[in-house]
Design a protein around this nucleic acid. Sequence first.
DNA 1: CATTAAGCGAGACGGTACGTCTAGTCTTATG
DNA 2: CATAAGACTAGACGTACCGTCTCGCTTAATG
Lengths: 206, 206, 206, 206
Amino acid sequence: MQGDTAANGPGSVHGPGSVREPREDRRSEKSRRAILHAADDLLVEVGYAGVTVEGIAARAGVGKQTIYRWWGSKADVLMDNYTSDAKEQLVPADLGQIDLELRDYLRRLVEFLTADPAGMVLTSLIGQSQHDKHMAAIFRRDHLSAQLDRERDLLRRGISRGQLPAGLDVDRALAELLGPIYYRVLVTGEPVDADFTDGLVTRFLG
Amino acid sequence: MQGDTAANGPGSVHGPGSVREPREDRRSEKSRRAILHAADDLLVEVGYAGVTVEGIAARAGVGKQTIYRWWGSKADVLMDNYTSDAKEQLVPADLGQIDLELRDYLRRLVEFLTADPAGMVLTSLIGQSQHDKHMAAIFRRDHLSAQLDRERDLLRRGISRGQLPAGLDVDRALAELLGPIYYRVLVTGEPVDADFTDGLVTRFLG
Amino acid sequence: MQGDTAANGPGSVHGPGSVREPREDRRSEKSRRAILHAADDLLVEVGYAGVTVEGIAARAGVGKQTIYRWWGSKADVLMDNYTSDAKEQLVPADLGQIDLELRDYLRRLVEFLTADPAGMVLTSLIGQSQHDKHMAAIFRRDHLSAQLDRERDLLRRGISRGQLPAGLDVDRALAELLGPIYYRVLVTGEPVDADFTDGLVTRFLG
Amino acid sequence: MQGDTAANGPGSVHGPGSVREPREDRRSEKSRRAILHAADDLLVEVGYAGVTVEGIAARAGVGKQTIYRWWGSKADVLMDNYTSDAKEQLVPADLGQIDLELRDYLRRLVEFLTADPAGMVLTSLIGQSQHDKHMAAIFRRDHLSAQLDRERDLLRRGISRGQLPAGLDVDRALAELLGPIYYRVLVTGEPVDADFTDGLVTRFLG
DNA sequence: CATTAAGCGAGACGGTACGTCTAGTCTTATG
DNA sequence: CATAAGACTAGACGTACCGTCTCGCTTAATG
């Protein structure tokens, strides 16, 4: 085996001794970057349905095989792309006050989902997950769980500070805080303003 | 609804006197039904991504042109299919008590989304809406708005009975009640039990 | 079944009730011609190895599927193309005198093989037959047998006129007359002049 | 021969001082043999069209670069392979009598072409020569000319013994003796028996 | 003996073409 | 004139090889 299991790239589902593993250490960083950038650009320009592996390859100046060697599908590429963006932009801030932190985080989440190109990737990936169980599993494993962890930490910080009740059901609380936002973005398509998110926090803390 | 002649079917972009309009009165009811059934069956058997116009036509014993004549895409067919199912199953009951009504409705909504084949259509359509603005618009116009109206009526009934505050922001309330459910179904994929939905109602009314 | 077996196009190897037969009567004559012309042009321009199904399709303004629907491979297309050319150019003339007829035919055969673009197709097909049993069988069934029949008729005419011995082994005679020509064209690549072919006839009749 | 350093291997197009010449003296004999064997085995197992450089490399446990370093193509490898086989098996015997020698040689040639794996290489190479001028030139230079020399010697021996006429056109005679055999093997695919080859000799000497 | 310069196995790379699949349009014959 | 059937152009799919290009690793032959 080359490389420890933990460090394997997204989409590496194969166990050891699988048919044929590409060797991570030989991987071309230049191509990797070109592919991720091309995918991102295309998503913005032509939309999720218009993104094709062929198009990514052409735009990146890369062989299709190189994409298939390291990712399993266009969704896989876009997800990889996205994960780093999300890590940077969706980290809940530590402001000492849970109400400020929540207000801030929800506002930034809305901003990300509705105005940031990377947010478009996220909603596309969630959309794709509705028709593709495999994609859904990878999405949850590689992106969502990390994000949820960051969000749980936020609430736990509030608990440890005594700003939230000790017995709080964290996951339920997240569903009640984030659910209405995702609902408007994904289902009704209504715009979401700060008033709405602030209201969620107020009712949650009240 | 597949639409009266004046309003034209979803996806028909032509103005009046445009290239050529099919005449609704000549339409074959037999083919229409065969197509909708075939689409439904296929969705359950092979999943949204596996459904193709070609597959529907073959299974229904129908020419592809007949599908394209009356619908704009596979999503259009599935949506048509779905709309009637939803009407039957997602009508909020009038039980006299808002708390009972909400508890009942949310439970049935969860049941529909997670266990009913028609619910699979719904989540698929929402998923598709994430990559297809046109689809999204049609989905909201032809399905979602009707459903939202039924849901708003539920809350308004509660207000008129004096069981809910007169100044209630109905749309915000719906987002807070339904959002957490859609969030779990669409985003995290966690199972949703009656405890969860009842809790939403309790906190909402409390 | 559509069409009697004899009239079936080249490459139709399937028995009745095979997976799916295209319907010959719906075939687009325009596309058929465009494909055959494009293939012929390409062969001359880029040589056999450079001809691709993709290239033919592009040049002909045709979908690849249309080529695969009616032919099995590029060799199949080129063969189809060729068969008609050969029919026109390689018919042994009836001149009343076997020596004149043979001299004439061998000269024209050489001319065809070495100077006519269609002759290039022929040698390419024979070449391809060396690595492809399936191709070889089709080539022999669809082209070679017809040509051999025409050549046998030539000799039989000579026999019936009393210009050749009654007990002549026709197939062996053809091998001795044509073999040296094909040998030079296919194996040694030496040029073949009228002196050479006339000599073959002289020795054969002597 | 894979060539002395001065003459360079087949397919080497570089002038002296060109990009970079591999050093023959460093060459791995083990790899060379593994490659030739693998190529031979593959030819028998999957046929000419199925042989690939990649397949040879994998089967031989060798890097592709090693093949490209010393040969120019799969045809090049197979030809190299073949040349030695032919040398052993297709040497005309010196039996003192031209009729016996010819009968013997033609029989062995037929046996080689139709039953020996190396004969399959030969016909494949001739086939390949029909679509590849470069290949054809190399084939003629590296294999055919040597073989033709051996064959011419056979006839010249007959002339010097007085068993063949002094003014015999040797090349024409070879075309008449060998042509019908190659014709049947390459073109018509008919089986060739001893009766046929003996008949050629009889008519040639008669 | 260390150095160094090759050949080597391995395999990732940019490409091209493969043969298949589906989209959405167009054509023909039938009722 | 809608329909079933299905051929059509178009173009993406995922795979197979091409021939080139690093990588570390032997393995000689030289300093």
